[in-house]
C-alpha cells in the first residue's frame, strides 16, 4: 500500500468529504459521484443498516482502511451495532448473523472474488430472501462502493490504521 498520497487534494474546505478529497480535482464527475452516492443510501429498498453491512464487507475485500473505519450515522440510527459490524469482519461471517445477513455477505464476497462463478444454490437462496428491487439495490451499492473504495486505495496515502469515525452522507 502506498504510504504517500499520489494526488494533491484541492485547496478548499467545503465540509463535503467528496468535494474536498482528491476527487474534487475532476469537477465534471463530482456531481454524478455525489448523486450516485446519495441514491445508493436514499433511493433503494434495503435499510441503511443493510447498506452499511454490505459496504463494510466490501471494504474488507478492497483493504481500504479508511472505508473500514467510517460508520455512516444513518446506519447507526437504523440500529446497526458495533457488535454486528464485528460479525462480518472475519473471513467466514459469524454464525450469529441472520440468514438474510449471511446471504448479503455471500453476495458481496461473490462479487469481489468470482462474479461469474455464482452458483444456482446462491442464486436461489438470494431470490427466496430478497425481492427483485432489493437484489438490484444490493448489486448496485456493492458496485458503487467497490469502485470508490478501490479508488481510495489506489490514490495512496492510506494509513495502516484509523480510529472509528462516524460521518454523515456527503451531499
Amino acid at each position: 500500500m502506498g504510504s504517500n498520497a499520489r494526488v494533491q487534494a484541492p485547496a478548499q474546505n467545503t465540509g463535503n468529504v467528496i468535494r474536498d478529497s482528491a476527487l474534487g480535482i475532476v469537477p465534471r464527475t463530482v456531481e454524478p459521484y455525489l448523486a450516485l452516492n446519495a441514491a445508493v443510501w436514499d433511493a433503494g429498498p434495503l435499510s441503511a443498516a443493510e447498506v452499511e453491512l454490505a459496504r463494510l464487507r466490501n471494504a474488507r475485500h478492497t483493504g481500504c482502511v479508511m472505508c473500514q473505519a467510517v460508520r455512516y450515522d444513518v446506519a447507526i440510527s437504523d440500529g446497526l451495532t458495533e457488535e454486528k459490524v464485528q460479525m462480518i469482519r472475519g473471513a467466514e461471517p459469524d454464525a450469529e448473523l441472520s440468514a438474510r445477513e449471511r446471504l448479503l455477505v455471500a453476495f458481496v464476497d461473490q462479487y469481489n472474488l468470482d462474479p461469474s462463478g455464482i452458483d444456482q444454490g446462491l442464486q436461489n437462496a438470494l431470490l427466496q430472501e430478497f425481492s427483485e428491487a432489493e437484489l438490484l439495490h444490493l448489486s448496485l451499492l456493492v458496485a458503487w462502493f467497490n469502485g470508490s473504495s478501490r479508488c481510495a486505495v489506489a490514490l495512496g496515502g492510506m494509513p495502516d490504521a484509523m480510529p472509528r469515525m462516524e460521518i454523515s452522507i456527503p451531499r
Binding site: T29, Y111, N146, R150, C151, L155
Partner: peptide, 18 residues
C-alpha cells in the same frame, strides 16, 4: 488524469462485474 482514470476504471469494472 490519474483521478479521472481511477473513476473510469471504477465504473467500468463495476459494470462488467454486474
Amino acid at each position: 488524469g490519474l483521478v479521472a482514470l481511477l473513476q473510469a476504471l471504477g465504473v467500468f469494472d463495476g459494470l462488467i462485474r454486474l
